[in-house]
């Protein structure tokens, strides 16, 4: 088997020296596949995603384990090597399209700056940006490139964010909750866009989300995180149909689409169940 594009091995990250946000996490992404990382709020999935790009907040640090990109360990000593990957080999799409662009610069200006690792004159970069905006389904791309972020809708801005990430032609695209801040119509459009882009994008995609529907629609494989641990991982079909870990089972049971009988309340995960999950995982 070939070397995975991204391999996270036994990674442990703590905040301020006492909260372990990620514990002994293992995860792999291969070229050409889309991998989902699901989990509830606070399960450590975003921290794990930040660790890949080396953009962890200064209060946190990697205690043990490592991250390898194309077979090369990028955590630890050589932070500069990791920084060099950002915006070149690895690109990110962030959660909130409202705040992920600078409010006082035009979209075009930012898309040009974001290609700072790419060759070419500013004019060429702008042309590339406009073409990419058209590619992600933005009407009137030349006009939109001159617009400021607040002049665009949330869905439009998220398309711009995806365009920004694709512009640098990364080997690994990390999307951190790409649809969470959008309404359902926009969400469906963005999922559709991702599916379409996957056809001619050859790199690996890591989608961080708490939305199982997004994973089912987009991903080949999925990892489930719970309280800082990756409790289960495997093919989407396997996990969705034959979940092994009790947390995954409980999580899937909460999906409203799976409810067949009329009920007066939606299923939730109870505290006593929670207490059982981690004991189960340590077995």
């Amino acid at each position: 088997m070939t070397e995975p594009l991204l391999a996270i091995r036994d990674l442990t990250i703590d905040y301020a020296g006492h909260v372990q946000a990620v514990r002994k996490a293992n995860l792999e992404v291969r070229l050409g596949e889309a991998v989902g990382l699901v989990g509830e709020s606070g399960s450590g999935k975003s921290t794990l995603a930040s660790a890949i790009t080396g953009l962890l907040p200064s209060s946190s640090r990697i205690l043990s384990g490592d991250i390898a990109f194309k077979g090369q360990v990028i955590t630890g000593a050589d932070r500069r090597a990791q920084a060099a990957l950002r915006g070149d080999e690895i690109a990110m799409v962030f959660q909130d399209p409202m705040t992920s662009f600078n409010p006082v610069l035009t979209i075009g200006e930012q898309l040009v700056d974001f290609q700072c690792r790419m060759p070419g004159s500013p004019m060429e970069k702008l042309n590339r940006a406009v073409a990419m905006l058209a590619r992600v389904g933005i009407p009137d791309p030349a006009l939109r490139a001159r617009a400021y972020p607040h002049e665009l809708s949330g869905g439009m801005r998220q398309r711009c964010a995806i365009a920004a990430a694709l512009l640098v032609n990364p080997s690994l695209l990390i999307a951190d909750e790409p649809t969470t801040a959008l309404d359902v119509t926009m969400e469906a459009q963005i999922i559709h866009l991702f599916r379409e882009l996957r056809r001619d994008y050859g790199g690996g995609i890591l989608i961080v989300t708490h939305h199982l529907g997004v994973v089912a629609e987009l991903c080949d494989r999925v990892y489930v995180m719970y309280q800082g641990e990756v409790v289960e991982g495997g093919d989407v079909d396997d996990i969705f149909h034959r979940p092994r870990h009790p947390y995954t089972r409980a999580l899937l049971a909460c999906d409203p689409a799976r409810i067949t009988e009329r009920t007066s309340y939606l299923p939730v995960i109870s505290d006593s169940e929670r207490a059982g999950f981690l004991r189960g995982s340590s077995l």
């Binding site: 915006g87 690109a91 990110m92 992920s100 964010a161």
Partner: peptide, 24 residues
Amino acid sequence: PHIRTARAFGVPEWKIVTKYGLRI
């Protein structure tokens, strides 16, 4: 968050400070 975006794309730190930060 937009500063984090700029960092995630590898925009040099001096440019982030002068163009993305200072202007606001």
